[in-house]
Design a protein around this nucleic acid. Structure first.
Length: 762
DNA sequence: CGCTCATAAT
């Protein structure tokens, strides 16, 4: 027993920082206690060899467990140990002794006990102690409030704060910091402003942590302007202040502003830490700036964060997102240990890569790669989380890999992640993109909670499938549910109207958007309206709209006009639009081929050779046409006139057979026009018989169960010839065929396509 | 009080 004091004091040094952290300056008596511990330690240090291992604390705990009485001075280090070990049972033993020895009179220890229970996630126990306490001070109240904040019960935190105010007590900055956190979690700018008002009214010192909390709150509530104001008013900005401001910019879509803050921070000689660097790297991800990213990478090494895993994860993700596979690979191989975030960043990074560089064929393999990484993850000991499921479902969407998506759906359900609203939305999106509107709406109905994104995803899903009425019905349901639509929701609504030719409704929703919701129309909204007039053959009205809007038309607008002009035979306007399109996208092979096809079919040879010359000058090569089909857990890829795959003979026979049948029903093959030899103008007319998607479809027809839908993904736009041929295929085979090309989803069924034949086809 | 990885479009 005699050795116990020094044993305990070793512990007290170890836990000193925590002790201090817990004890705010307002409690002078408690503070002196910590100092006395410290003093005693220094006296024993010389004759007792310091042993910082936890053995001593463990020993004290085992004594307690045997029922031996020990000095109350041990309680705090012991309780701290329970927090570190996250052990409620240890806390309960100590709690028992505290009651037996009458130490519950000690408010400091009781407050610490509340803290322990809160940190172990047992708020009921913490609340029980709080309710029984004969007296409380503001720290006790703050411990309870902080507990609720950390255990995701911000409503209760606010409630306790209100009770505190009713007692007439004055909250400290610690209390208000916790309350501001609660407001952040509730995304309640109203409550936050009240607290802000309270801080001003009672002239509570606007210290650094308070300012940081306010900045964070305004940022989370989407008010970047107020967040920046709060940041600028922070008297002595520390690393956390800068980091908060920087990530506030990122969270609110102002990545460039965030980088400017970072530069300012460096120029003021504030040293960034690992949190700052990860935040800055995520800004680089948003604007996809590899150059700045590399600089941050070397800065992080100079600052000694070379082996910091979160930073390495961010760097690897950035490199993947910028398509720098070698850099990402190097970054990954330099990791001795990896975390689940590493896995998730790998999957999400490959998913992101799929969206850049559309005609770079190797990049499409990143989808396959992402699926492989997910398989590897499942074979490892790591369990996927909601980030994993959201990312991998997106991969399945992009790959139109329904079978894989279904398996992942089942796995997410089994592991309980389907209840997460983001995973649920990703699932709805996956089924939509795979062309299964039925399963998408089933998944949507089964969601227990829906966000703006869930509703929008389903509305646009209906619109894509040509189910305009259901899309608009769902939009009204969404409004009834009290969810506020945003501009993307209105893109869905307007495109639904456009598809069904509902001019009156479209214009009315356009007004509702502007007046009722205060959303300023952007180019995409005009694109929907113009698309609507174009579909109806009202080309002049469409052109009027283009001239009326406040923007310079972008490539989407011109593409829509071209599609309409070709369908309705107004070639002059079509050529005009195509030339404008070319001015906007001088390097895009698809645009040149589109224009070339238009001039060729009009027999305007002068223009043909003019465009050909431009292509040679710009060094535009042939179109890289590639399609994929995913069957079970394999992905097969196809090139035009590809003969390299198994069953290619049967596939060609099948296509010949279908072609013959189609011709009997009046299909005229308008052979696709492409560039074969850059040097030889005479060979403009391509010898290509089958574009890649036809081969993928034939392969699917041969290998998928009878009646199963065939789903294919293609890297560029389909051509008009394939589009009409596939309509015939859907009739002869009785199958539904889903093709996602670079522009949109085409669902062929019984001779019709969900795009309504108005798409930007080549 | 601050961190990296996730969902919607013509």
């Amino acid at each position: 027993m005699a050795s116990l004091p020094s044993v305990a004091l070793t512990g007290s040094l170890k836990f000193e920082p925590e002790f201090r952290k817990y004890s705010p300056s307002s409690l002078a008596s408690e503070k002196s206690r910590s100092v006395s511990h410290h003093k005693s330690y220094t006296t024993t240090q010389s004759d007792q060899k310091p042993d910082p291992s936890c053995m001593d604390i463990k020993e004290a705990l085992s004594l307690l467990k045997d029922g031996t009485k020990i000095e109350s001075a041990f309680y705090v280090p012991l309780l701290q140990e329970s927090i570190d070990e996250n052990s409620v049972s240890d806390a309960q033993i100590i709690h028992g002794h505290i009651i037996k020895t009458g130490t519950y009179e000690d408010l400091f220890i009781m407050t610490f006990l509340i803290n322990v229970y809160a940190k172990c996630g047992t708020m009921e126990a913490a609340r029980k102690i709080f309710d029984k306490l004969p007296r409380r001070n503001v720290v006790t109240w703050t411990a309870l409030i902080t507990g609720y904040v950390h255990n995701s019960q911000p409503e209760l935190a606010i409630l306790v704060f209100q009770e505190l105010l009713e007692t007439g007590a004055y909250p400290t900055n610690y209390t208000l910091g916790a309350v501001l956190s609660a407001c952040s979690s509730l995304y309640s700018i109203e409550l936050g402003k009240q607290v802000h008002g309270y801080i001003i009214k009672y002239q509570i010192e606007y210290d650094t942590s308070m300012g940081n909390s306010l900045c964070s709150l305004y940022s989370k509530c989407g008010n970047l302007e107020s967040a920046v104001k709060a940041f600028k008013r922070v008297p002595e900005k520390n690393t956390i202040s800068w980091t908060t401001a920087i990530s506030a910019c990122g969270d609110n879509g102002q990545a460039e502003m965030g980088l400017r803050f970072f530069v300012e921070m460096l120029s003021e000689d504030t040293r960034p830490n690992e949190f700052t660097l990860t935040s800055v790297l995520s800004l680089c991800c948003i604007i996809q700036t590899l150059g700045v990213g590399k600089q941050i990478h070397s800065l992080s090494i100079r600052l000694g964060y070379e082996s910091n895993l979160p930073i390495k994860n961010s760097i690897m993700y950035l490199y993947l997102k910028c398509g720098w596979i070698d850099g990402a690979q190097k970054s990954l191989s330099g990791m001795k240990t990896v975390s689940l975030v590493t896995w998730n960043a790998l999957i999400a990074g490959h998913a992101q890569m799929m969206n850049c560089a559309k005609d770079d064929i190797p990049v499409r393999h990143s989808g396959t790669e992402a699926l492989n990484i997910f398989l590897k993850l499942n074979r490892s000991n790591t369990k996927p989380d909601l980030f994993t499921f959201s990312s991998i479902l997106t991969v399945c969407s992009n790959m139109v890999a329904l079978e894989q998506g279904e398996q992942i759906h089942a796995q997410a359900m089994k592991t309980g992640f389907l209840s997460d609203v983001v995973v649920g939305s990703a699932l709805v999106n996956m089924y939509n993109k795979c062309g299964s509107i039925e399963r998408a709406s089933k998944a949507f109905v089964e969601m227990s909670k829906r966000t703006l994104i869930s509703w929008t995803s389903m509305i646009t899903g209906f619109a894509q499938h040509g189910r305009s009425y259901q899309a608009l019905q769902l939009f009204e349901d969404m409004r009834l549910a009290g969810v506020r639509p945003n501009k993307i929701t209105f893109v869905g609504v307007l495109s639904a109207c456009s598809h069904a030719g509902m001019v009156k409704e479209a214009l009315s929703y356009f007004e509702i958007m502007k007046n009722e919701y205060g959303i300023n129309p952007v180019m995409d909204h005009y694109a929907c309206l113009i698309d609507m007039f174009v579909r109806l053959g009202r080309l002049d009205e469409a052109f009027d709209f283009i001239q009326k809007m406040d923007f310079e038309p972008n490539e989407v607008i011109w593409s829509i006009l071209i599609a309409g002009c070709r369908s309705h035979g107004n070639m002059e306007l079509g050529f005009y639009a195509a030339e404008r399109l070319l001015e906007l996208k001088p390097k895009d092979a698809e645009t040149y081929v589109l224009l070339l096809n238009m001039y060729l079919s009009a027999g305007r040879w002068k223009d043909v050779s003019r465009v050909r010359k431009m292509m040679r000058d710009e060094k535009i090569g042939r179109l890289k046409d590639c399609s994929w089909i995913s069957i079970k857990d394999k992905v097969y890829s196809f090139l035009p006139d590809d003969k390299s795959f198994a069953q290619s003979e049967q596939a060609y026979d099948l296509l010949e057979d279908l072609l013959a049948k189609a011709k009997n029903l009046g299909y005229v093959s308008k052979r696709s026009l492409e560039i074969v030899d850059e040097e030889d103008d005479e060979k403009i007319i391509s010898s290509i018989v089958h574009h890649s998607e036809r081969l993928a479809i034939a392969f699917g027809l041969l290998n998928m169960p009878k009646g199963a839908h065939v789903r294919v993904i293609k890297n560029i736009s389909m051509c008009r010839d394939c589009h009409s041929f596939i309509k015939f295929i859907s009739v002869f085979t009785g199958r539904k065929i889903v093709i996602r090309d670079s522009k949109r989803l085409h669902k062929f069924s019984n001779g019709h396509c969900s795009c309504g034949d108005f798409s930007n086809l080549l």
